[in-house]
Design a protein around this nucleic acid. Structure first.
Lengths: 144, 144
DNA sequence: CAGGATCCTTTTGGATACTG
DNA sequence: CAGTATCCAAAAGGATCCTG
């Protein structure tokens, strides 16, 4: 799809040598992929996309559902997602105003991945908690 | 695996009604899943995990490969990932010191998802760029 | 080389007030 | 209801210096 100047992520080599090229894709800070990743891997974006699975939600519904999000951050996040073409914003000309947010077709293609990320977290939270407890215990051992 | 007090993300209902419960999982800010998501969906964590696919890398290699990361942030990120049991840290007792970082088995299970997130971004960057251009153009129209 | 500690800047984000 | 604008506090992050 793109110009192919960087290797696919599927590149795989178990050799460990200080000098061989370990780069797997365009890692430049200002490249498009990095910028997009920063946006969609965002704390609030992730939750919004996950919540919009199969349903459209109003601003106030999202605000209620996403515990801890401020009106400002939800607003900012939704505008970003709308700009990126991942979320659609539908204004109903009624009083009081009603605005519905939903995933666009593009957003729906991303949703699968986001969902698997959330699912992975749900399935492995016990292992992570255990690893943390282990690490912390070992740290305390060191200090004592 | 867990206690099952919240619904699976696979729950899906297209009905839109202001009062029905739209919650799909435990969205509390202080819940484990939210905290873990915040960590692994982190800008630098994502890149480290993606880079450690099938290879172990030294601190300085990671620093070189991840454009824009400061020594401090790479250090902090690696310690977090190590604490969460996603990345292993191997110190070779040589002079000068050599430390290798690699994915743990748990980290490898996460890698698949991270990889699909990066792949999605690579494959859809053109669409997103177009959506942004479109949005920006419409904004300028509005202001004029 | 691989970081820890410190200081200081930049960014993020919350609270509040206000508008269509 | 669904936001925007402003101001300010908190947190993230960079630069630098230092050590085993």
């Amino acid at each position: 799809m793109e110009d192919g100047t960087f290797r696919s992520l599927s590149y795989c080599d178990s050799t460990v040598d200080d000098d061989y090229d370990v780069r797997q894709w365009d890692t430049r800070e200002d490249c498009e992929v990095r910028q997009i990743l920063d946006r969609i891997a965002d704390k609030w974006s992730l939750l919004v996309i996950a919540l919009l699975d199969c349903q459209s939600l109003r601003f106030s519904q999202l605000r209620r559902e996403i515990d801890g999000v401020s009106q400002r951050m939800l607003s900012v996040t939704l505008r970003h997602l709308e700009r990126d073409g991942l979320v659609s914003r539908t204004v109903h000309p009624v009083v009081p105003p009603r605005v519905d947010y939903a995933l666009t077709p593009l957003g729906r293609t991303l949703h699968q991945t986001i969902k698997s990320l959330v699912t992975w977290t749900e399935e492995h939270q016990a292992e992570i908690a255990a690893a943390r407890a282990d690490y912390d215990a070992r740290q305390e051992m060191m200090e004592a």
